[in-house]
Design a protein around this nucleic acid. Structure first.
Lengths: 232, 232
DNA sequence: CTTCACAAACTGGTATGTTAGTATATCAGG
DNA sequence: CCTGATATACTAACATACCAGTTTGTGAAG
């Protein structure tokens, strides 16, 4: 074989394990509050219901506990965590801190095709908003923020943001339609500021945008107090 | 019992599991490069050597892989990861972004006892520097940064920083004495700026301080190329 | 010496048995 | 009814066994 062509290194990580599948299934059910906070889960019981052994369930439990979705109490029980207003607030602090720096950098000037892609996401989002397609709206919301990260050549930052986001995701899921119009307008304002290369404006718009989550939490908490942990 | 004293809720998480111990042991050995990059580890082999079953070893492996210390390739091997200059740089970006915001807030004014505590850490650090006690110097380095977080009432941020720090920790360990004097002086400058309520000065001092890591990586890489992964 | 089929020795993922700690049901004594 | 000891039924942590892939050693063919 000619050494001129080094071929391409193949990535041997393709097979989704059973543990992955259990994780995904539980993640979706916790996120959607199909498994509401304080629900007790048992490795053995989940394994039985899913028709697998306890081992992959255990792996999945552990991963979910790392995300803050499950609380594992050895020899006692594993329960779906309550939503902590404090943790949501902290996650927002971390996220906004990182993302503000990113939009400021983006405000230094973006490539035309990045701006075009962001515009496309925004118009799609407007479509989703008017059609009341909430799941699609949220997907596009993420896509918008992610695209900004990538455009600023800081794509890895999105991975960090996503991890801190687990706490807030259930809140977002709960909020569903509420505040969508506002969210869309916030995005519009952020992009406009970036295009105008107005870093301060972009920062303000983004900070306002992310600050909404705390208000949403307060509203939800009033209606579903048992889903939230009560720390001062 | 008088209801006037609600006692204190006990936290049922006190027992360090075997998995924890395996994790700690491996963490220390990877960090110290006692297990250098590209070392192959086997669940079975480690379990045998430590006299435990594969199960807790497996848990520990998974945690270490999440930190980026191990690369698990199913059915193939688990190896100690190489140090990625790119990942170190990215971790620094995340860290400096968060920590800059923190020192800026701290520059808004700190309580007297916080400043006193920071001064004490600094003088201890000077002592460690002159006595060439490197491990203690590094511990105090962390303590300094952590204390600033706590003083700014953002103690949780330190937990986030610590997680992103795994990538950089091996580099720090390798660097040992080099740059300690410089690090101490950076700390001095940061604290002085905070005391003077000079947010911009504190930001500059911190950013310079954290930027050192990239220089250190370059130097180490030249001497130990096999420990580093070569991406572009 | 090189090539290559193939067996043997690995790997981590999965299944299941065992152990020790915890919560709860039960019931005797008041 | 209440109290408190104790048996029972849980729990997750840990140990062991097996599986399906992958790598590697080996030796015959060329």
């Amino acid at each position: 074989m000619a050494p001129s062509d080094p071929l391409t290194q193949i990535d041997p990580v393709v097979r989704p394990t059973i543990a992955d599948q259990v994780f995904d299934a539980l993640y979706a059910r916790v996120l959607s509050l199909d498994l509401p906070p304080l629900t007790k889960l048992s490795e053995a019981e989940v394994a039985r219901q899913m028709g697998v052994s306890r081992q992959p369930v255990r792996d999945a439990f552990y991963r979910l506990s790392k995300l803050g979705f499950l609380i594992i109490q050895p020899q006692r029980a594993t329960t779906v965590s309550q939503i902590s207003a404090r943790d949501v607030s902290r996650a927002r602090f971390i996220r906004s801190t990182i993302e503000i720096r990113i939009v400021r950098r983006a405000s230094g000037g973006l490539a035309d095709d990045d701006i075009a892609a962001l515009e496309r996401i925004l118009s799609d989002q407007l479509g989703a908003l008017e059609a009341d397609e909430r799941a699609r709206f949220h997907r596009l919301d993420d896509a918008f923020h992610q695209r900004i990260c990538e455009a600023a050549d800081l794509g890895f930052a999105w991975d960090v943001i996503r991890e801190t986001r687990a706490h807030t995701d259930r809140v977002r899921y709960l909020s569903l339609g509420t505040g969508s119009r506002r969210a869309y307008e916030d995005h519009r304002r952020i992009l406009d500021s970036i295009i105008a290369r107005d870093a301060d404006g972009a920062e303000r718009a983004l900070d306002d945008h992310l600050a909404q989550i705390d208000k949403i939490v307060a509203g939800l908490r009033a209606r579903n107090p048992t889903w939230f942990s009560e720390e001062e």
